[in-house]
Amino acid sequence: MLIDIIAGARPNFMKIAPIIHALQARQEQGGSLRFRLVHTGQHYDARMSGDFFTQLGIPEPDVNLEVGSGTQAEQTGAIMSRYEKLLLEAPGSLCLVVGDVTSTMACAIAAQKLCIPVAHVEAGIRSGDWSMPEEINRMVTDSISNWFFTTSEVANNNLRAAGVMEKRICFVGNTMIDTLLANLPRLQKPEFFDSLGLQAGGYVVTTLHRPANVDKGDGFARLLTAIAESARGLPVVFPVHPRTAKTLRELGEVPANFQLVEPQPYLEFNYLVKNALAVITDSGGITEETTVMGIPCLTLRDNTERPETITLGTNELIGTDPAAIRPAMDSLFDGQWKQGSIPPLWDGKTGERIVAHLERLLSA
Rank of each mutant, 00 (worst) to 15 (best):
D334T: 08
N270Y: 12
A328I: 07
Q188Y: 04
R243D: 09
H21N: 08
V279S: 01
L361K: 14
S32R: 11
C297V: 01
V121N: 03
M132T: 12
G335Y: 09
T102I: 13
L33F: 08
S131W: 02
T244H: 03
N156H: 03
L223H: 01
Q24G: 09
I310W: 01
S283N: 10
F52P: 00
L37D: 10
P11R: 05
L181I: 10
A90N: 15
G348M: 00
I318S: 06
L362I: 14
P239H: 08
R82Q: 06
G348N: 07
E250C: 09
N270P: 05
G92R: 03
L198I: 11
Q29D: 04
V204P: 02
D129F: 00
I79S: 11
F149C: 02
R360S: 14
V254F: 05
A90F: 10
V164C: 08
F269E: 08
L198A: 01
A200T: 14
A106T: 03
P242V: 14
M329N: 05
A9F: 04
I19Y: 01
H39R: 04
R186I: 07
T141G: 11
T207Q: 01
L114Q: 14
P296M: 01
A221H: 12
Q42P: 00
G124E: 01
V97E: 05
I109L: 14
W130R: 13
I125N: 13
S230H: 01
A356L: 06
D178M: 05
P255R: 04
V140D: 02
L251S: 10
H241F: 07
L361F: 14
P59M: 08
M139P: 03
I318T: 01
A155D: 14
G294D: 05
G99P: 04
Q259D: 02
I58C: 04
M1Q: 07
E352Y: 08
